[in-house]
Simulated assay, not measured.
Amino acid sequence: MEHYGVQTAAGHLTVAAESKEPYAADVLASLHEDAAQVVARYPQKRSALLPLLHLVQSVDGYVTGRGIEFCAEVLDLSMAEVSGVATFYTQYKRHPNGEYTVGVCTNTLCAIMGGDQIWDEVSEHLGIGHDETTPDGKITLERVECNAACDYAPVVMANWEFFDNQTPESTKQLVDDLRSGADVTPSRGPSRVCTFTQVSRVLAGFNDGLADEGVGAGPASLEGLRVAREHDWTAPNGTPARHTAEVPADSAPGGVARGRHSSTDTPSNAADTLPGMPPAEGK
C-alpha cells in the first residue's frame, strides 16, 4: 500500500493510504471502454494522457496509484511519465478532494476588488487553508490565479463554474449551501454546480448535456466592444471592431468546465492588434 502526507484542517501532517487496490472487474471494464473512446480521438495515443487522468479522477475522486498504473498501461507510458504530468497540473489531485472545489481568485484585480478579504473570511469560516478539505469531505478550498473573468471581479469558482461579483458574505453562503446539499446555480452556465467527480468526467471529454444551459457572457464582457463601436474605433491595422459581439449577450458562450469560451476569445494574430509590429509572414 502506497502512503503519502495529507494536510488536515487542523494543520497537522498525517499519513493517509493511497488506494492501489485493483479496480473491481466491472469498474475496470467501464474504464477501458471509456479510455478507448478517448484514445481514438488522437493520432498518437500518448496524447490522451490529460483526459485519461481526468477519467480516473472521475472514478476515484483523485489521481490514485491505481489510476496512474491504468493510464500508463493503456498509453504504453512509464509510471514516472504519468506521475510527472499528474503532479504538474493543479486540476489533478494527489490526495482525496472535496465534493466541491471552491477557488477564490486572489490575483491582482480580484485581490484589490475584495478577493483577499473573501479568502481570509471564507478560510476562517471553514477552518481550512489552501488545498485543504473540510472534515465532512464537502469543500476543498483553493487560492487560484486568474479565472479569466476580470470583468466580474472578485470572482469565485465552484468546480470551475463562475460566481461573479462576490463578497465575503455571499461566498460564505455559497460554501454553506454546497455543504448542505442544496442545488446551487452559478452566475453563468448550467443551472447547477456538478460534483468534482462529475466535472472530472466532463473534462475527460464526456458530454453531460449541460453545455448550453444558462447565460454566457453578460453586458460587462461586451462593454468594451460597445464603446469601440460607438466611437467607431478601429484596430491599429484599420480593421473595424467586430469580433464576437454578433452573438447576443444572453447566448454568448461562457464558463470553463464545459469547454465554453469568453466572448473575447476570437483568434487573432498579434501583429493585427499591437502597434509597431511587422506584419506576419504571408500578409
Rank of each mutant, 00 (worst) to 15 (best):
P96F: 03
N97F: 08
P96S: 05
N107H: 10
M79K: 14
T87P: 00
V104K: 04
E99N: 11
T106L: 02
I68W: 06
Y92F: 15
R94E: 12
Y92T: 00
V63I: 08
T64A: 06
A86W: 05
E69S: 10
G103P: 00
V82W: 11
T87L: 13
V82F: 09
D76I: 07
T108F: 13
V85D: 07
Y92A: 00
P96E: 12
M79P: 09
T106Y: 04
A72D: 04
R94M: 09
Y92E: 01
R66M: 05
V63A: 04
T108W: 14
T64S: 10
E73V: 04
G61F: 07
H95R: 15
Y100Q: 08
T87C: 05
E81H: 11
M79N: 13
T90M: 09
L77F: 13
G65I: 01
G103F: 01
T87V: 04
V102W: 02
Y89L: 12
I68L: 11
S83Q: 15
E81T: 11
C105H: 03
V82D: 14
V74Q: 15
E73A: 15
R66V: 02
E69R: 02
L77R: 12
D60F: 07
G98Q: 10
G84K: 10
D60R: 04
C105D: 10
L75Q: 12
V63M: 12
Y89M: 13
D76R: 14
S83D: 14
H95Y: 15
S78R: 10
E73W: 12
C105L: 09
T106P: 01
H95T: 13
G98N: 11
Y89D: 11
G67D: 01
I68T: 03
Y62R: 06
A86Q: 01
T101K: 10
D76H: 15
R66D: 05
M79D: 14
R66I: 05
D60K: 10
S78E: 15
G65V: 05
D76F: 13
C105A: 12
N107G: 06
N107L: 02
N107R: 07
N107V: 02
